[in-house]
Design a protein around this nucleic acid. Structure first.
Lengths: 256, 256
DNA sequence: TCTCCAAAACTGATATGTCAGATTTTGTTG
DNA sequence: CAACAAAATCTGACATATCAGTTTTGGAGA
């Protein structure tokens, strides 16, 4: 699950990628402080490439920065998550239209196979009483891949990138919390793949909209509660969270 | 027609804005070289804020950079323009749905007024034999504002920003060339505004799709020709274009 | 224990200088 | 005059150092 499209220099690119996986792997949960200096020391570079990486991550919505006050992994608001859903619904329903309109039999077959596999994984996840975070993340990553496969089949690179951006961002926001898990209907993705493969563009559009918005209201409600709970609480300053990975640990214990 | 949403430091933000208007005003046409040093000298800063501004402009698609070889205003490919249309169709039809679904009478009235004004301006443009570049740009800017008004009425900030980004980018690409002008039908925007104000979400969606894609094929054909004409021509190195504004002139005549 | 405030510590922003790579120019040779 | 190579020039990437805000901290006083 990685964007390449360099556009950035060597060290800056490396810092960007390290930070990105650090965030997406949950080692750097929302609120984690990201000091230019400490990161530079950790990476063995100056602060310049770090600043470039953080600027890009900020533009992509992973990070928020206030001048001379600090940079941290972003805490999304309910409004932003809601907006993300709206934009993603627009992009993915467009991809669904184009897929239904012009996907080759091979692409359709491939999508069906992916959908089947994905549904299997979700089912096996449902069986477990307490699925591990890693297991959930693994399945969700494949979920993203499934949707990107639809977009890729359209042949429109710009659409793929826009959807990936939107998907990955939500992925990160969701997995930063212990979200109550809403099980999906049986054959949820297989049915979608069938709709996209056999239906007209318009019905594919509609099917995708339903798919995208299925868990939306539950999730928004959940986050609204979390937001209310955090009302006026820790508003600024680094969050003293307990984190597992080596990344954040190293970062915290670094002097200077 | 300006994005604010800082996210960047003082000098970097200023450099970004200056460069952005320089590009959008046509003073820096596609292919113009943008040297960190020269720009820094022109702005009276170091190269650091300039680099930050250029990195952001690159992420937004206005500029392309190759490490240690140069940065220049981007020359779009036909594929990118086509992709831009697909993404924009997705975003704007979504905005149309939401507008039809939830716009207040006041917002509808306001949109109709804007549409009427816009159509008037297009009509007066059609009357002129050789409309000036400035006059065309002025009307096109209002065209962008019209579409942003629809998005703003949805109350979804993320959708507004995504549409603005997509619109402004195409705006810049189109106005960098002397495009053959395809006149619009009578009351083109007024009819759209009416459709969005009175119709159901689905019909609003469809109306917007038709609107967005109206000139698309002509434009893509036009650019395909231009691209073919430039086949293998000036591939690298600064373009020695003749430019009007003071911005580019200063830039070119700067030593170092 | 709580409030307030100044000093200390930390932060991102920026200037300056250097480096290696890419490009362009120039000089040479056929 | 063409082809080619070396040198001069230009480019962005980056390191180091400093600055001015912001936040945290450690009492002093209530």
């Amino acid at each position: 699950m990685g964007i390449s499209i360099t556009g950035m220099s060597d060290l800056g690119q490396q810092a960007y990628e390290k930070l990105r996986v650090g965030i997406l792997d949950g080692e750097l949960p929302p609120g984690s402080p990201l000091s230019h200096r400490k990161l530079a020391q950790l990476f063995g570079t100056s602060t310049i490439p770090v600043a470039a990486a953080l600027q890009r991550l900020e533009a992509e919505g992973f990070v928020e920065s206030r001048a001379r006050a600090g940079t941290r992994v972003k805490m999304p608001t309910v409004g932003e998550i809601s907006g993300n859903y709206i934009v993603r619904e627009a992009l993915e329903s467009q991809a669904a239209r184009l897929f239904a309109q012009s996907a080759t039999p091979l692409q359709k077959k491939r999508l069906l196979r992916l959908a089947n596999d994905l549904d299997k994984r979700y089912r096996s996840l449902d069986k477990q009483v307490t699925p591990s975070r890693e297991a959930q993340a693994e399945v969700e990553k494949r979920h993203v891949e499934f949707h990107l496969e639809i977009a890729k089949a359209t042949g429109c690179q710009e659409l793929v990138l826009a959807i990936e951006k939107s998907r990955v961002l939500l992925f990160n926001w969701l997995f930063s919390r212990s979200g109550e898990y809403v099980p999906l209907p049986q054959g949820w993705h297989t049915r979608l793949a069938e709709d996209l493969s056999t239906g007209q563009p318009l019905s594919a559009d509609e099917a995708m909209r339903l798919h995208v918005t299925f868990r939306r209201d539950d999730i928004l409600r959940h986050f609204a509660e979390l937001e209310r709970a955090a009302e006026g609480k820790i508003e600024r300053g680094p969050q003293h969270r307990k984190v597992s990975g080596t990344f954040a640990t190293k970062l915290q214990n670094l002097p200077r």
